[in-house]
Design a protein around this nucleic acid. Structure first.
Lengths: 209, 209
DNA sequence: GTCTATAGGGCGATAGAC
DNA sequence: GTCTATCGCCCTATAGAC
């Protein structure tokens, strides 16, 4: 890692096109790919179809990304990063709200939910180690983020202290993921309405009549 | 459609092999297919691979099932039916317990969870109307079943009455689905532990100290 | 009725020309 | 750095043997 590569730790980016020109082109392809997925979803997204929509050959795509799998995961990563900045600005005691917000952002671009779900389902299978690593890491990261917020809430007295933060974090994430898919299949499913029920779990013993 | 077809409404079964011999053979293939998926998951399940594992040609499979998609959905349906009988016997006031039970049954056969998730993700895409219809119907059915149990609980005073049964049902299902996938990616996720938190939502205002 | 054999078109991936 | 050509595999469809 010498002259002008990208971030030292970014193995995927370094694998091909590690120098200025290549990096720029890679970014451009990624950006265009996100647009394509957002608009059309995963429907018939062969390497050839993606390449055509972008205006290159499918072999050119494979010059920048070692496989279809890695290209698609990079699209998810880029889309995730794009929104993470927003979350940091939010009230650090929010727990369900942060997921509701994310869920609504996602269903606004159904293609991304479709891509996310498909890659997640695929990541369980053998031979999809790259996907598996991404999703393992993503869930780990997301749970840690929520656990931290839950603990802040517990210390502040706004969240019941008799609940396991890890179990709660996993639950909130699972509910958010699951509701997005149900909503895509049937828009009468009320994502926010269902997620808000989780606030009932969080609230300390209430002085309810 | 003349002599001895199966149930008139069962379009999928009627499409091919509508006669006693064919129906039996179809069932046999389905049973074998379930075993294959349970053991190996969705990994490399081309029609040819499934056919080989069962011991027939891939064309023979297509004689009984009009497409790979429909075969796979039939596998899910058969697997679902297999367990539905068990649920009917359970305590009719159970809500979270019924899902915890189902979730644990599922993670015992990871291949089925993998198949389920993949087909569910795929069902969102265009051209997968058969899958979409199955999952729409399944979620509708499942929500209705839970709504009924929730309403019984509300009438009996064991469930808070200020919660929307529909929203609650969708939440419980979403959480169960999402947790199964998280568990497959990271076994330290405690499915039952997380789902049990939902019981806190259900309980009426407690006389907690 | 049940199944085998075969053909068409698309896929991801690779090799090598320019 | 990007392309064309090609490989082996896949799903689907169909003709016709038994």
């Amino acid at each position: 890692m010498t002259a002008a590569p990208v971030q030292p730790g970014d193995a995927a980016a370094a694998r091909a096109g590690s120098y200025p020109k290549g990096v720029a082109r890679r970014q451009e392809i990624l950006t265009r790919a996100i647009e394509v997925f957002a608009a059309k979803g995963l429907e018939g997204t062969s390497l050839r179809a993606i390449a055509e929509a972008i205006g290159v050959s499918h072999a050119a795509l494979l010059h920048y990304f070692p496989s279809r799998e890695e290209l698609l995961i990079e699209v998810l990563k880029a889309n995730e990063t794009r929104f993470n900045a927003t979350d940091a600005e939010r009230d650090p005691t929010e727990i369900v709200g942060i997921m509701t917000n994310a869920a609504h952002r996602n269903v606004g671009i159904p293609g991304m939910v479709s891509l996310y779900s498909s890659m997640l389902a695929g990541s369980i299978e053998e031979g999809k180690e790259y996907s598996r690593e991404y999703f393992s890491g993503r869930f780990e990261r997301l749970r840690a983020k929520l656990v931290s917020r839950i603990q802040i809430g517990q210390a502040a007295g706004t969240v019941r202290t008799d609940l396991d933060p890890e179990a709660l974090a996993a639950l909130v994430i699972a509910a958010s993921d699951g509701l997005q898919v149900q909503w895509l299949l049937d828009p009468k499913v009320d994502i926010a309405g269902s997620l808000e029920l989780l606030d009932v779990i969080l609230a300390p013993a209430q002085e309810k009549k």
